[in-house]
Amino acid sequence: MRKFVIMGIQGSGKGTQAAMLAERFDLVHISVGDIFRWHIQFHTKLGAAVKRIVDAGELVGDDLVESVVQERLQLHDWNYGFIVDGFPRNAVQAEFFLESYDIDGVINLEMPDSEVERRVLSRRLCSGCGLDYNLIASRPEVEDTCDVCGGTLVRRPDDNPEALANRLRDYHEKTTPVIELFERKEFVAHIDATQDRESVLAAIVDEFHLPTD
C-alpha cells in the first residue's frame, strides 16, 4: 500500500501528476478541488457556500477543507493506497494527518510565481461540458469554442490577476510551515514542475524508487 501527499502551487500540475500516479499505481486520488467542484456542479448546500468563497477570489477555510478530507478518507475505499491533493493546509492539519496515517512521503511540486501566473491566466473552461483547456498547451481547434460540445470557453471567475495574487500570497504563507514540518518527520521530494508532465512524473517515480514497469 502506498500513501502520498502531493503539494504544489496552483498551476504546477498537481492534479495532473496525482491522477497519473493514481492510474499507474492503482491509488485513490483524493482531490479537495474535485470534491468541491462536484458539490458546485450538483448545487449542494456545501457547493453554494464554496462557490461564493471562490467567486470572491478567496480560499476555502481550513476547517471546511479538513472536514471534507476526513469524511472522504473514512470511506476506506483505498485498498492499494491514496494520494491526497490539496491537504493539509496548515501545520495543525499536518500534525493530525501524520498521527492518523503512515504515509510514504510528500511530493512538493515547485514553480516560480511568474510561471504560475502565465499558466493560470491561460486556463479556460467549457461553459457547456466543463472540459478544461489551456491556451498554452491545449488550444481548441476553433478559438473560444469547445472541440467536444461546441460550448463557449470562459475563464474561471477566480482566474484573474487580483484573485491569483491573493491565492499565491496565502499559499506561500501557509504552505512553508507545512513543508518544514513534513521535512522534519517525512521524506519530502522537491520536484521541478516547470518540466513537461512526463519528466515530472519520471522524477517523482525516481525519488520514491517506485517500479517503472
Rank of each mutant, 00 (worst) to 15 (best):
S67E: 15
C149H: 06
L59Y: 01
C146T: 07
V60L: 02
V142A: 10
L109I: 02
D132G: 14
H76L: 09
H209M: 10
T212V: 04
R119I: 09
T145V: 14
G13K: 04
F87H: 00
F42E: 13
A189F: 07
G86I: 07
D77H: 14
V5M: 04
T152A: 10
I53M: 11
Y101F: 14
H39G: 05
V205K: 04
V50R: 02
L164P: 02
A203I: 00
L64H: 01
Y101R: 04
G105E: 00
V200L: 05
E58Y: 06
G150T: 04
Q41N: 14
Y80S: 15
V116A: 05
M7R: 07
I35L: 11
C146D: 01
V60K: 02
D159A: 02
G11D: 02
V142G: 04
D196P: 09
I204E: 04
P140S: 04
N90F: 05
Y80Q: 15
V120K: 04
G86Q: 01
V148L: 13
K174M: 13
T176K: 15
P112N: 02
D104Q: 12
E207C: 09
V188H: 04
H76W: 03
H76Y: 04
Q93M: 01
M20Y: 10
M20N: 11
A19G: 10
H209P: 00
E186R: 14
R197C: 10
V5Q: 04
I6T: 02
A193K: 01
L164G: 00
L73I: 07
V148G: 07
L168W: 01
G151S: 00
H39D: 11
M20H: 10
D170K: 09
F82S: 06
R197E: 14
I53H: 05
G11P: 03
A49D: 12
A189W: 04
G13P: 12
V106P: 08
L46M: 13
F208V: 02
D159P: 03
G13Y: 05
L201C: 05
V92C: 12
V84T: 09
L121Y: 08
G57I: 09
E183K: 14
V32N: 09
V200P: 05
T176E: 15
P112I: 10
E143F: 11
S127V: 00
V28N: 12
L64T: 13
E71H: 11
E162Y: 07
A49R: 14
E141M: 12
D158I: 11
G8Q: 01
F208M: 03
A163T: 08
N166A: 10
K51Q: 13
K3H: 10
I179E: 04
H190V: 10
H43T: 00
E23F: 07
G15T: 08
D55M: 03
N160H: 15
R155F: 10
V69Q: 01
I53A: 11
T145D: 03
L125N: 07
E183L: 05
Y133I: 13
V106G: 08
T44S: 05
